[in-house]
């Protein structure tokens, strides 16, 4: 592990963005990905380490208009315990319940989990299924600017995102789910927790009369990035969840993913599980 030459603890997004604009910096949030990667030598600290943990704004959860705003530093434990979040997005709590261990959940942040951009990152599929956007801030023309990007355009590849070097991810924004919104997350691993997904899947939509509208299906650990299964979504949109529809959607999802073989599972098994878990979640939705 190398040592950063400078260490900054900004108190505001403005200060953090200012520091980032000078370049050659590494951002520290929960550290649950950064530190093991640094210790293993797969990640090198840049000149300046910016610890953003004292920026109060980034820890806030708020509702405004039709949007829910989750600050980048909201922890995975918050997803489980914050009653506003649980009420609006129970699927995020369901996901958090399969996330690593208690200690890691306390430290790990929503923003960090997305910026790490692991294909198997636990929070990506449910946030994709919730149509989340990410808010990013930077200094441009000498002042703080913010932009928003749909999450499905954020992931560019394994460990690569659309976040520019001078940008800080500040929040995740989720459109408030409409009535009868239904969302489920499933993670397949050898253990029920403290495990990296073999595959993960999130299903969301408005469920009425055994039909799903505004269907979102998202997968983790089956492609270079977390991804939406848009053909499966199209096959499901507005249709009664009968056997034939479910089978067709599961088959479509299977054809949309491009998993690899690694130490955790083979590509074949991952593909099988994509259709198998798709079927399971859809059968559950049909019976809900």
């Amino acid at each position: 592990m190398n040592s950063p030459a400078a260490y900054l603890v900004p108190a505001s997004v403005d200060e953090a963005a200012g520091a980032l604009s000078r370049g050659n910096a590494t951002v520290l949030a929960g550290g649950t990905d950064l530190m093991p990667q640094a210790n293993q030598g797969v990640r090198v600290f840049r000149h300046t380490l910016i610890n953003i943990n004292r920026i109060a704004e980034l820890k806030a959860v708020s509702r405004s208009g039709d949007w829910l705003r989750i600050g980048a530093l909201v922890s995975v434990t918050d997803l489980l315990q914050n009653s506003t979040l649980r009420g609006i997005c129970p699927m995020l709590a369901e996901t958090a319940d399969h996330f690593a261990s208690d200690q890691i959940r306390n430290a790990a942040t929503v923003g960090g989990n997305l910026c790490n951009a692991s294909p198997a990152g636990d929070l990506s599929p449910p946030l994709l299924a919730l149509d989340a956007s990410v808010e990013m801030a930077c200094h441009r023309d000498g002042r703080l600017q913010r932009r928003s990007l749909p999450l499905d355009q954020f992931f560019l590849g394994p460990r690569r995102t659309a976040l520019a070097e001078n940008e800080l991810l500040t929040a995740v924004q989720i459109p408030l789910p409409p009535p009868r919104h239904y969302g489920r997350f499933f993670k397949l691993g050898i253990r029920p927790a403290l495990d990296i997904a073999i595959i993960s899947v999130a299903l969301a939509g408005v469920l009425e009369n055994r039909k799903l509208n505004r269907v979102r299906v998202a997968f983790g650990a089956v492609a270079p990035t977390p991804l939406r299964a848009r053909r499966a979504e199209a096959l499901l949109e507005g249709r009664i969840l009968d056997e034939e529809t479910i089978r067709a959607a599961a088959q479509a999802a299977r054809e949309e993913v491009t998993p690899i073989t690694d130490v955790r599972a083979s590509a074949w098994y991952r593909s099988e599980m994509v259709s198998s878990m798709m079927r399971r979640l859809l059968h559950e939705a049909a019976g809900a």
Partner: peptide, 16 residues
């Protein structure tokens, strides 16, 4: 050895 760490060498944990 492809998994020389507890991340991918899975010991049984309490819930199981």
């Amino acid at each position: 050895c492809r998994n020389p760490a507890f991340r991918d060498y899975k010991l049984v944990t309490a819930p199981e």
